[in-house]
């Protein structure tokens, strides 16, 4: 059993076709949509967590890519500009998954990308604007 977060980029012409639902029906995968911005006649973006067997996951991804969907691991979604982060900790107030937490020794804010669900709440809350959305 594996659990991965991915970002799916849908080309404009595929936005109005049912694609993702087949992951459940034909590939036995579960998914949880974390974020979606799909508007008709534009490129769509879907952030989701996929759960299932490794081989089904690989086949599912292949299917998506054959449909013209670009798949990207979520770790590239929210990134921290290390030069701008001052390690104040203001982001801790809004991070829902504790992907951002304070290391009690170094008193520096740790960003655990594995825990990040790309809710983007930290992006505008960060005073030096060190948290960036990267697609």
């Amino acid at each position: 059993m594996i659990r991965r977060k991915v970002v799916l980029h849908f080309p404009r012409e595929k936005v109005d076709k049912p694609i993702v639902s087949k992951l459940v029906r034909d590939y036995g995968l579960d998914f949880n949509i974390l974020k979606a911005s799909i508007t008709p006649r534009e490129e769509g973006l879907l952030v989701m967590e996929i759960t299932g067997e490794e081989k089904d996951y690989q086949r599912g991804l292949e299917y998506l890519e054959n449909c013209g969907v670009r798949v990207q691991p979520l770790s590239q979604d929210v990134a921290r500009n290390e030069d701008r982060c001052t390690h104040c900790g203001a982001c801790l107030a809004v991070c829902p998954t504790r992907a951002l937490y304070m290391d009690s020794e170094s008193m520096q804010v740790i960003f655990d990308r594995e825990e990040c669900v790309a809710c983007e709440l930290c992006v505008k809350v960060c005073p030096p604007r060190a948290m960036e959305i990267r697609y």
Binding site: H87, C88, L92, M102
Partner: peptide, 13 residues
Amino acid sequence: VPTASLSSYSRAR
């Protein structure tokens, strides 16, 4: 209540 700081302790150090 969870706390958060606006002052950077690591940079103060």
